[in-house]
Design a protein around this nucleic acid. Structure first.
Length: 500
RNA sequence: GGCGCCAUGGUGUAAUUGGUUAACACGCCGCCCUCUCAAGGCGGAGAGUUCGGGUUCGAUCCCCGAUGGCGCUACCA
């Protein structure tokens, strides 16, 4: 091939972009970028009832968030504009007239009831449910006359007399016997052209060289091949990507929880994590020992020939692993900005724009402490919640805590510790804290868990959590800030714990 | 029912043109670190490649069949 490949992602704006679509877009984008080709975005909105402008806007936002910019399409336009099918109706009409004129297509006057009856009898006879071709034989003068007279008709393509075959980059040669393919409807009786038709016309006119899409389209492909042939157009290469399955091995859907790209963004998963994960879902680099890939690295490594044909099960655990990796890797300033709204939304912090530099600096430290503990940013407020306050009664009542607190040793540790805290004013430093703990240890004989757990419960409400060395400064510093929720100092925590 | 696609540990993928102790990662288990949790480091278990036939000196890999899963079977996309 001498010319640069041209690929397209052609979503219909009938809902949000989900992981399956995102992976299709990603593979198209990677294929184009790897070969220096062109990535086209085309909006398939011929289903006027279900298409909505807000979905198109959301789609574009999601694609941009993933970093998959397009070379031609809405917003950037290009030599084959328009890129929205609802704006290309005239083009389809011209092509339909040509097909009719050349006898490649015909008017079908069959009613829905007739077609229904045909299907029913075909099913009863265990035969393929294909259209009988009843209207194929209507002579052109009569056909034209009936149309003229106002009789409703759809336009159907004549499926040729030979097997329909095409080459698929991930599956090899695929062939469908023509007897199993119905003469497809090209234009509805309403005059609106149908998906299989417009997609083909557009792919050909936009000079798409590689059609990369989900394998739910594989059975549509013979019809599209017939359309290419009817127009005398050269067939593109196809690549049908396998389905993404849920853990129950059913096609992934909203039923399996969040599958919309936007929801991953809202959860606080970084786009590079999602991209990396999606790339791995159906593709493996040569050798297969690497898992972490940036978009640039993927661009370099990606080969369509290495894409698997078998369906893949979506695995949250692995996505989370990747998510944690990228969260730790990311620029702190970026993560701070992304994490902040989750705290503000929980009422723990003011909105970012109104926060002072001292609060921001404090938050940075807080984030550094808790980030390793989460897989996605929206878990943060809960993880760090005890910093902002906890229910002493509930903490004492907690079974595991109660067991720790019940021992005589724990009681001695706590009262010794409280005495230390009460005896002094001012900020508690980690050094001071350490010194106190050593003293308590000497006085009570408690050590290890026996020493630390009671204190940890008193201070945080839980027997587990981040190291005290890092925790103490955050608590103390936080207590001096003006926040929507007061952060209690070590001293306040001790007082509060004993008050109940 | 018809047509099509697919089939390697629980999951995602590897395995020069048929010859490997079937590899890597997630997860799981254990150990180390540690007051604890998370992170991190180290180690382990887990598949003989869905099943049955071929072809071959030799099949994860090629062919056939079965089984199972999925998709399509619309005047939806």
């Amino acid at each position: 091939m001498t010319s640069k490949p041209r690929v397209r992602f052609a979503p219909s704006p009938t809902g949000y972009l989900h992981v399956g679509g995102a992976r299709t877009a990603l593979y198209n984008w990677l294929f184009a970028r790897h070969l220096g080709g062109v990535f086209v975005l085309r909006i398939e909105d011929t289903d006027l009832d279900r298409s909505e402008a807000r979905h198109e806007a959301a789609l574009i936002e999601d694609l941009q968030w993933l970093g998959l910019e397009w070379d031609e399409g809405p917003g950037v336009e290009g030599p084959h504009a328009p890129y929205r099918q609802s704006e290309r109706l005239g083009i389809y009409r011209e092509h339909t007239e040509r097909l009719l004129r050349e006898g490649q297509a015909y008017r079908c006057f069959c009613t829905g009831e007739q077609l229904e009856a045909e299907r029913a009898s075909a099913a009863a006879d265990h035969r393929p449910q294909v259209y009988s071709g009843r209207c194929r034989g209507i002579a052109e003068p009569e056909s034209a006359r009936r149309a003229e007279a106002g009789e409703a008709f759809a336009v159907r393509l004549k499926i040729p007399d030979h097997p329909l075959r095409f080459h698929d980059l991930v599956r090899g040669e695929v062939e469908f016997p023509n007897e199993t393919v119905s003469d497809p409807i090209l234009v509805r009786s309403s005059g609106m052209p149908v998906y299989n038709y417009v997609v083909t016309v557009d792919d050909a006119l936009m000079e798409i060289t590689h059609v990369i899409r989900g394998d739910d389209h594989i059975s549509n492909t013979p019809k599209q091949v017939a359309i290419y042939e009817a127009f005398g157009w050269k067939l593109p290469e196809f690549a049908h990507l396998s389905t993404i399955l849920g853990s129950d091995r059913e096609k992934l859907s909203k039923r399996h929880g969040a599958t919309a790209v936007a929801s991953f963004r809202e959860m606080g998963i970084l786009p590079e994590a999602l991209v990396n994960y999606l790339a791995l879902l159906g593709w493996g680099a040569e050798g297969g020992t690497r898992e972490i890939f940036s978009l640039e690295e993927l661009t370099r490594e990606f080969r369509l020939e290495r894409v698997t044909a078998s369906p893949a099960v979506f695995d949250w655990e692995k996505l989370h692993w990747l998510s944690r990796h990228y969260l730790k890797q990311a620029e702190p300033a970026r993560v701070e900005e992304l994490a902040w709204p989750h705290f503000a939304g929980a009422g723990l912090l003011p909105v970012l724009e109104t926060a002072g530099p001292d609060v921001k600096a404090w938050f940075a430290k807080l984030l550094a402490l808790f980030l390793p503990a989460v897989s996605q940013l929206d878990e943060l407020p809960k993880k760090a919640g005890f910093i902002f306050g906890f229910d002493v009664g509930a903490a004492r009542a907690n079974e595991e805590n109660a067991a720790v607190l019940a021992t005589e040793s724990a009681q001695k540790v706590l009262s010794a510790f409280a005495a230390k805290v009460g005896a002094q004013d001012g900020t508690v430093t980690p050094e001071q804290f350490k010194a106190w703990m050593n003293e308590v240890k000497a006085e009570t004989g408690a050590k290890g868990k026996g020493l630390f757990h009671p204190v940890r419960i008193a201070l945080t409400g839980s027997h587990s959590g981040p190291e005290f060395d890092k925790l103490i400064p955050i608590v103390e510093e936080g207590s001096r800030l003006t926040l929507p929720v007061h952060v209690a100092s070590v001293r306040e925590r001790v007082e509060r714990f004993f008050a109940e």
